[in-house]
Design a protein around this nucleic acid. Structure first.
Ligand SMILES: [Mn+2]
Ligand SMILES: [Mn+2]
Ligand SMILES: [Mn+2]
Ligand SMILES: [Mn+2]
Lengths: 207, 207
DNA sequence: GTAAAAAATTTGGTGTACCAAATAAATAAA
DNA sequence: TTTATTTATTTGGTACACCAAATTTTTTAC
């Protein structure tokens, strides 16, 4: 059998995609190693392998980026991840902060059409439980215009679209505050004695 | 990360279970290697590893069998396999002869409660799409009394409970004949010019 | 420009899961 | 019982994906 091919590769590509999406700064070996929680030596050789497969590109300044082929592969894995998350939440009644690790496994199931059938079964959801958009069959991603809450204006109302972090601590914290994607927030006050603006929010909208 | 531990182990245990269930004869290294389509050397060292983990037992006559612990593990993997098969057929509209390979992957998803939730979602099915019984949460298997069709009596009617083979060719053949578990068959005639009895059947019951 | 720090790379390992080919042991046949 | 065949086991590999530690290269600071 295929012997669980590419499980690792897919994680590298996915990580590379979200790193280059979030940060404007260039991604180097160290940054990628940190994001994957792996040793730089490990990452270095994998990056070389991916480069030889035309999935990533290493520029003269050692910056690592996805090729078009790599980007597409990343997006297809992200598609699987997010659709499985929707399944877990909508059908198996998981809480939205419990599904990440499971989706991390399920995203590697290899099949031509399983995920398309799953998508149909779930009624073609546009967003995953964290508010992140689900790429389509061909790997295209609809970009929704969102702003970070920290750059919101005092007194204005905003709709939570997606979350910058996916770590369990953060998601559990939001869960405790009953904040989730789709919910509307009103920025009561902004005060920044520390670098990151902290802010009070008023919950409003569907529970 | 757990690093896709035990994917292989589970396949060994599962194969060992079905070998010892089907055949009355003892399972040796060669038989296991054949069933797994692996090299005997490979199987030998894995069997030793499994023995050291108290999952299998190698008797003086070199016969390999599951321990109680190994049997339980095998049944839990089989439980996962069969529940995923039900999901694929009932929810994703796969044909019953298309799901085996996918279930072969899905059965290795690691989670304390995913499969219990899936079972609830599927409404506690007792059998998989091939008519095989689904072990319960604790790994217990309800044994239904079935007889091979070849030992059926001429003129009598039987209900298809399960299938001895799971290979694609056989399943596709049955699919073509519109034979599936739950269906009632009447044995029209038995004639055995070759070793295995061939027989004509009359389809009857729900389509 | 030199020294310090950071990043990249090399080197020599690990564990898992596989293989082919050679050898040893056990079993069946003559 | 001797030979042939089958089964078990050993030996020396491979690929993948990881690591720690040492080294080299690059960048930044002074
Ligand atoms: Mn993953
Ligand atoms: Mn998500
Ligand atoms: Mn399997
Ligand atoms: Mn089945």
């Amino acid at each position: 059998m295929s012997h669980f091919a590419h499980h690792s590769e897919e994680n590298y590509l996915k990580t590379l995609f979200s790193l280059s999406a979030r940060d404007i700064k260039k991604v180097n070996n160290i940054a990628l190693a940190q994001a994957l929680k792996l040793n730089p030596a490990t990452v270095l050789e994998m990056v070389r392998k991916l480069a030889s497969k035309n999935l990533v590109e290493v520029k003269k300044d050692k910056t690592i980026s996805l090729t078009e082929k790599g980007r597409k592969r990343a997006l297809l894995t992200i598609r699987k991840h997010r659709l499985w998350e929707v399944f877990l939440v909508d059908k198996l009644r998981y809480k939205w902060n419990e599904v990440h690790e499971l989706a991390e496994q399920l995203e590697h199931i290899e099949s031509k059409d399983l995920i398309d059938r799953l998508e149909a079964f779930l009624d073609y959801p546009a967003f995953d439980p964290h508010g992140d958009p689900i790429p389509d069959k061909s790997g295209k991603l609809k970009i929704s215009s969102t702003i970070p809450l920290s750059s919101g204006e005092k007194g204005k109302r905003y709709k939570v679209m997606s979350l910058a972090e996916t770590n369990d601590a953060f998601l559990t914290y939001l869960e405790k505050l009953h904040i989730k994607p789709g919910m509307k927030l009103k920025v009561e006050d902004l005060h920044s004695y520390d670098q990151s603006c902290s802010l009070f929010v008023h919950i409003d909208g569907d529970p």
